[in-house]
Structures are given as structure tokens and as C-alpha cells.
Simulated scan of single mutants.
Amino acid sequence: MASKLIMNEAIKAAEVSLTGLDGEQLGVVSRQEALDLAKQLKADLVCDSLMSSPPPCRLVSRGAAKREKDQAGKEARQKDGQIKVKEIRLSASIEEHDYETKRRQAEKLLESGHGVLLVVRIQGKEGPAAKTLLEGLANDLKASGTRKTGVQLSGKQAALELLPK
């Protein structure tokens, strides 16, 4: 997994080897000078490695560093092939608003690289309704995920597993 991102005031070195927003080398400057420049350019100061002295740091547009780290983490998880599967429980007689909430929740999980196990608890003769509900939800989530399994009806529940695209 990606290591912790060291940014701005969390960088404790007295001097840093600074790279600008466009990748240009700005040389070795004091930590305070680098922080002032970052503030002036509305950017973040990000440390790439603490293993060298002075540590190499770069200016990155505000918020881009976190997105970059999140993306790298997502790619690393996908390469590992160890996708965490999160369970979302529904009922066969779900209201439209609740359905939309669960759909958005599943979409968010799929987009962040997690698998989703949709589970519908069945009581009495709700089997066909549960199957229809899961088919519809899988259809609505086509853009974010692909089916790992078909709808599985077993005793008291119906389940469907989706993997991120």
C-alpha cells in the first residue's frame, strides 16, 4: 500500500531540495522558504522521500497530491488482486429513496476499488421480488462494476457480487 503522504508543515527538515510546479529544479532552499513559496502559488509542498538529505520535495497544485496518492493506492490494491468486498443489505420491499441511497453507496464503493456484495433478506414468497431487485440494481451499476456472480438464491437470502471495473 502507498506510504503516508508527508506534506506542508509535516515536513521537519531544515532544508529541502525543491522542484517547482512544472518539474523545474529550484535547488536547495530552507523549509520555511519552500512553505512560503507553496502558499504564494496556492500549492502543497510534498516530500517524496525522507531517505536522502536534503529530502526531495516538490510543489503540487492544491489537492492534487491527495488525489495522486488515492489513485496510486487504488491501482496498488487492484494489482494485488485483493479486493475487499463490502456487504450492502437491502430488503425486497425497499422504498425508492432507500434504493437510490443504497445504489449511490454501492457506486461509491465500486469506484474506490472495493467489491460489493448485495444481500437481500427473504421472508416468505419474496424470492422473485428479491431477484428482480438485484437484477435491476446490477443493471443500474453497470457503469461502475461488473458481475462476479449471478443472483444466488439460498434459503433466507438472495445475493449478488459485483467487482469494480
Rank of each mutant, 00 (worst) to 15 (best):
L21P: 01
M51Y: 10
V85W: 06
P54R: 07
K79F: 05
A72W: 01
A92N: 03
A64D: 09
P54N: 08
S30W: 02
P55S: 12
A14I: 07
T19W: 10
G27M: 07
E75L: 13
S17Q: 13
I88A: 07
R67W: 04
L37F: 05
A76F: 06
V16E: 14
G27K: 15
A76L: 06
I83G: 12
E33G: 01
V28P: 08
D36C: 03
H97M: 09
L41A: 13
D36T: 09
R89S: 05
D22T: 04
T19L: 06
L59E: 15
G73N: 11
V85N: 06
E96V: 00
A13C: 03
A64T: 02
G63P: 07
V28Q: 11
A92W: 03
G23A: 02
L26Y: 09
S91C: 00
G23D: 07
I94Q: 00
L90H: 00
A72I: 04
R89Y: 03
I94P: 00
S61V: 15
Q71E: 15
A10F: 04
K12Q: 12
I94N: 00
I83R: 10
D22V: 01
K39Q: 10
I11E: 08
D22W: 03
I94T: 00
Q71D: 11
A10D: 13
K86A: 06
Q40F: 13
D44K: 06
D44T: 11
A38N: 07
G23C: 09
Q32S: 15
E87M: 11
C47R: 15
V46P: 04
I11S: 05
R89M: 02
S61Y: 05
D44M: 04
S49F: 12
S61A: 07
L35T: 06
L45S: 12
P55F: 08
R31Q: 14
S52Y: 12
K84Q: 10
L21Q: 05
L37R: 10
G27F: 13
A43I: 08
E96I: 00
D36Y: 05
A13R: 02
G23E: 06
G81K: 05
C57F: 11
L50W: 14
D80W: 10
D70G: 02
R89N: 02
H97I: 14
E96P: 00
G20T: 07
E95C: 00
A34P: 04
G23H: 03
E96M: 00
G20V: 02
M51T: 10
I88V: 09
S61N: 08
K69P: 03
A92G: 01
Q25T: 15
K74D: 04
D70A: 02
C57E: 10
S52W: 11
R58F: 14
Q40C: 04
A38E: 09
